[in-house]
């Protein structure tokens, strides 16, 4: 299992430092490669580099919000089929609908269960193959 995850690169976008580090560690432990971005600007740079297989993103960040980043990803031929999970403390209906209309695959509201996140990540990656 651990070996199989090795080739996957996950772009993790999150502005809360703890959440970013901890989630990164969780994903690393499962054997994924993780690219991190701590704000909208870094995230857009990383998106430009087009070197990721999956995106986990927060919504509220400085410089550019999650929706904007998602639309950048989806608007590009590289990113169009990349699975995206939103992990956010925004949990009102409007935000969730906005996310799904933009084409994200999953929406997790904080607090999240780490196990659940991993299962969803793996399921989405399996579907991609």
């Amino acid at each position: 299992m651990t070996g199989a995850n090795k080739e996957y690169k996950i772009l993790l976008i999150e502005d809360d430092e703890i959440m970013l580090k901890v989630t990164e560690r969780i994903l690393l432990k499962e054997g994924f490669k993780v690219i991190v971005a701590q704000n909208g600007k870094e995230a857009l740079q990383k998106v430009e580099e087009k070197d990721y297989d999956m995106v986990i993103t927060d919504l509220m960040m400085p410089y550019a919000n999650g929706f904007e980043i998602i639309s950048k990803i989806k608007g590009d031929s590289y990113g169009a089929n990349i699975p995206i999970i939103i992990v956010s403390s925004l949990g009102n209906e409007d935000s969730i609908m906005e996310g799904f209309r933009l084409g994200v695959d999953d929406f997790l509201k904080k607090p999240i269960m780490a196990g659940e996140l991993l299962i969803r990540v793996k399921r989405l990656l399996a579907r991609k193959l």
Binding site: I18, S89, I112
Partner: peptide
């Protein structure tokens, strides 16, 4: 508390 705001489930 901050951790628990971000993680529920068994970790919580």
């Amino acid at each position: 508390i901050h951790y628990r705001k971000n993680f529920s489930g068994d970790i919580g």
